[in-house]
Amino acid sequence: MPLFEVETESHIIITWADDDDAALEVVADAYPQDEVVRLTRRPRDTWVISKGVLGLTTKNLDPCMTARDCLSRSAGDKVNAIRLYRMETGSDLENARRAIESNMVMGW
């Protein structure tokens, strides 16, 4: 089964599906309010996220409970979670983005 990358206005979804229509169905089920911006069939059946690109090159990656709480309250919406994190911690945009994205990578 092919691996698809589906980008919406708010999310990037990685899913296995039989074809383009089935991949779009997965998105419609999970995020019915989102409009699909891009649909890409990945050339391989694996997905890799580079920790270096996300700025996570340290060995000690501990989940941040505040970031995880913000992600939970925002239902996984990264932009909203960053906004919540900034409001709760007083962090600047870059540090809030790193906190939220690193916790997303760790499977909040």
Score class of each variant (00 low, 15 high):
R41F: 02
L3Y: 09
I13P: 03
G90M: 11
A81E: 06
S72V: 05
V26S: 02
E7S: 09
V79P: 00
T46M: 10
A22E: 05
R42T: 00
E5K: 13
E25T: 07
A96F: 02
R73I: 04
K78Q: 06
V105L: 14
V36A: 15
M104Q: 04
R98F: 06
L3E: 02
E25C: 12
D62I: 12
S72P: 03
G76Y: 02
E88F: 09
N95L: 14
G90T: 00
T8L: 09
A23V: 12
L54D: 04
A96V: 03
P32C: 12
G52C: 08
S72A: 10
D92L: 09
T57E: 09
P32L: 13
E7W: 02
D20R: 12
V6L: 12
A96M: 04
Y31M: 07
A22F: 04
D92F: 07
V36I: 11
D29Y: 09
S74H: 03
A99G: 04
D45T: 10
A30N: 06
A28L: 09
R44S: 11
Q33D: 14
V26A: 06
V79M: 14
P43D: 07
L24W: 13
S50N: 14
W47M: 13
E88G: 07
A96L: 08
L84H: 04
R86C: 05
P63E: 10
R86V: 00
A99I: 02
W16T: 05
A22C: 01
D34F: 11
A96G: 04
R73C: 10
L54A: 13
E9R: 13
S102K: 01
I82F: 02
L84T: 00
T58L: 15
R68L: 08
T46W: 10
D19Q: 08
R41S: 01
G76R: 06
F4C: 04
L93K: 08
P32M: 14
D45S: 14
P2N: 01
N60D: 08
I82L: 09
C64F: 12
Y31T: 01
R41A: 05
L3P: 00
L56N: 01
V6I: 12
L3A: 09
S10V: 03
M65C: 05
A75N: 10
Y31C: 08
L84A: 11
L39K: 10
I14T: 01
L71P: 03
A99N: 02
P43R: 15
D45P: 03
S72R: 14
D45Y: 09
E5M: 12
T46P: 00
I12C: 08
A17W: 05
M65A: 15
F4Y: 15
M65K: 11
L71V: 01
A28V: 01
R83M: 06
I13E: 00
A22G: 06
S74Q: 00
R42A: 13
R68M: 15
R68G: 06
I100E: 02
D77K: 15
A67Q: 06
A81K: 12
Q33A: 15
V6W: 06
A22S: 13
P2D: 02
V37R: 15
A96R: 11
D21A: 15
E25L: 14
R38S: 09
D20C: 04
R97K: 13
I12M: 07
T15I: 07
R83W: 00
